[in-house]
Amino acid sequence: MSARRRPGPAAIRAKGWFAAHRWLLARRAAQLGFLALFLGGPLLGVWIVKGTLATSLTLGVLPLSDPFIVLQSLVARHVPETAALLGAAIVLAAYALLRGRLFCAWVCPVNVVTDGAAALRRRLGWRDGVRLDRRLRLVVLAGALLASAVGGSIAWELVNPVTMTHRALVFGSSLTWGLAWSVVAAVFLFDLAVAPRGWCGALCPVGAFYGLIGRWGRVRVGAPRRAACDHCQDCFAVCPEPHVITPSLKNPDSDLILSRDCTACGRCVDVCPQSVFVLGVGRQGPAAGAAPLRQGDLP
């Protein structure tokens, strides 16, 4: 069996290095930028955003809260104060309007870890691994809510690598990082050697929750030039949720990626040598000129 070719080189040849990494660079810049907003205070004394991804206060006035954490608190029978509730509502509204899993690709610090594991797998040519059912993350989500309700505590925060990593980066000195490193390492090794794209793709309930709230968001990837597709499969090789791509290439009604699982990471856009894909907002961008938008035809 011949190994699948590595995605990337063909796009670089066709479009140049920069165009073949545009969205990747933008995403890394965004991830670093969000981190810098949190770190400006403790490191430089410039307090723009205070707190962590769980709840933060921007410029002393704007609260933002992780709605999944607030939901667990609610089912654990604590009614948070207005600041946290308002913060959760704002985040909920923003992701519902944009796209839920934008969080995964553009904000979450664990994304860098799982992207790294996937890149290393491609480089090593490792193709095997446990293929976990992607619906498992909904089961984990339900389990976390159940544990919160029965145990009366915010259950997922006991193990959540997302907030643990972020907290360690924002609140820990290199000395106190301690065991938080081990959480990052565990996720990396899991994705590298056990289940490819396993953590974000099948287990993480934070991503699953954002997926549920933001499937109708306006930020989308589409394939307006799908006629040019030469079936090189590079997009499938880089996409963290490859099952979302096929419909945009084949569906006669819409060339948009409609699945709630798409993180709008734009790697398919970067890596396609034929420039088939576009990442954009609403009808400008992907939907322009394409068949009318139809929602709800894909799970």
């Binding site: 707190g51 769980a54 919160s148 009366g152 907290r167």
Partner: peptide, 8 residues
């Protein structure tokens, strides 16, 4: 059940 571990 109340503390979201925000560190504020």
């Amino acid at each position: 059940s109340a503390c979201v571990r925000c560190g504020l």
